[in-house]
Design a protein around this nucleic acid. Structure first.
Length: 217
DNA sequence: GACCAGGCACATC
DNA sequence: GATGTGCATGGT
């Protein structure tokens, strides 16, 4: 079986079990970008609390968030954890968005995918996963998002030989699947789902939709 | 009371 | 280039 066939088989099993995940759970591209920074190494439920705080404070626009004092911003996003670090990262992102694009995401939208990725990676606090999450979930670009769950599932099921890094894992998916943003969107969300419920640091393989597929000890 | 969560930058070797 | 560490809240 080719890698592409294996990846499609896994996708079909996950989708059959869990159904569409309706990612990203954000209301606008701007919210997706803010959420992508806030969710770094953090449970999404905590991020929702932080975003709710921003919404209730009526500062969920580029201009208002950019104008907010750093300590006030940190206070509002406190539930998301690492709040001082993340306040600085959001500020850096907003400096870029407001400084280079006047806070206008429709202008950002016009940029090509690889140029945009480079711009994101140049912002302190935006690494590969956050950049790719924004490209896929805010801008619908066919970029596969790699995260800890992706690495765990791919490693355990022998899709890739360790040691492997982010670009290698991303290339595995991008070169073996159709270059399709809705597919990448759903696939990543499904990997997160199976990672939360079964493919955990200490595995819970009983009842896993991937049970019976090749697996490492 | 551990363990875990949709990373990243920086220090040190 | 590889490895280690700080950052922090909140749910299980």
């Amino acid at each position: 079986m080719t890698t592409g066939q294996k990846l499609n088989q896994i996708y079909e099993r996950l989708l059959a079990r869990f159904g569409p995940q309706h990612w990203w759970p954000g209301e606008s591209p701007f919210e997706v970008m803010v959420g992508a920074i806030l969710t770094q190494n953090t449970n999404w439920g905590n991020v929702e609390k932080a975003i709710a705080n921003l919404r209730h404070a009526d500062v969920l626009t580029a201009e208002r968030l950019h104008a907010l004092p750093r300590d006030r911003l940190a206070e509002l996003i406190r539930p998301a954890g690492y709040f001082n670090i993340k306040a600085a990262r959001l500020a850096g992102y907003l400096d870029w968005l407001c400084g280079r694009y006047g806070g206008d995401l429709s202008r950002v939208e016009r940029r090509g995918t690889s140029a945009l990725r480079e711009e994101f990676l140049a912002i302190k606090g935006i690494g590969p996963e956050t950049a790719d999450s924004i490209l896929l979930y805010a801008f619908n670009r066919p970029v596969f998002v790699v995260d800890a769950y992706t690495a765990r599932v791919a490693g355990r099921h022998g899709l890739i030989e360790p040691p492997f890094d982010y670009p290698q894992l991303q290339d595995l998916f991008q070169s073996s699947l159709a270059q399709d943003a809705p597919l990448f969107n759903e696939y990543h969300a499904l990997l997160v789902r199976v990672g939360k419920e079964h493919c955990r640091p200490t595995p819970r393989c009983k009842g896993c939709p991937l049970e019976g597929l090749p697996h490492r000890v």
